[in-house]
Amino acid sequence: MLGLIKLIQDIVRSLNSQGTPGQLAAGMALGAALGLTPLLNLHNLLILAAGMLLNVSFPGFLLGWAVFVPFGFAFDPLFHAVGTVLLINTPALKPMWTVWYNTPIIPLTNFNNTVVLGSVLAWVVLYVPLYLLLRWSIKLYRERVYARLKRVRVFQVIAASKLYNWYRLFRP
């Protein structure tokens, strides 16, 4: 566990985020893709690359991944239904899928799986609303919750511990 925390700290040190609510929200919304969609697919490698290369909060990216994993599992039936409509029940889209399916590299994304397609599409649609919602929540947290939290005795004790190093990644 400590190794994991250390790893996260190292990543943060090397990819020093500016730490604004917008950056943290953008990172979390991007990381949500890894949680919402089945992990071992090519598109997630691209999203990981985006999370590392774009100037968003990488710890936020990892947090977004972790937070949205349960949502991914919970909404799989919904993603499957969306994917089924698009891949099977919409004949107008078939020519497009056929071209994609027979184009090098694209099939490695597994877009032709109902759960993968449905979840990726859901993430794409939700990205902007998720970003806006997260940015607003983080602002609210920093203004109201964090300001009070740092005066609490228990929090001060924790702050002195190693765990605080990890928590500090997300403070303003």
Binding site: F79, G83, I88, T98, W100, N102, N112, T114
Partner: peptide, 16 residues
């Protein structure tokens, strides 16, 4: 779809 911890779903093949 492939067996995994997540739901397998259905994989559709589009031969051309």
């Amino acid at each position: 779809g492939p067996k995994r911890a997540r739901m397998a779903g259905t994989t559709v093949l589009f031969p051309r």
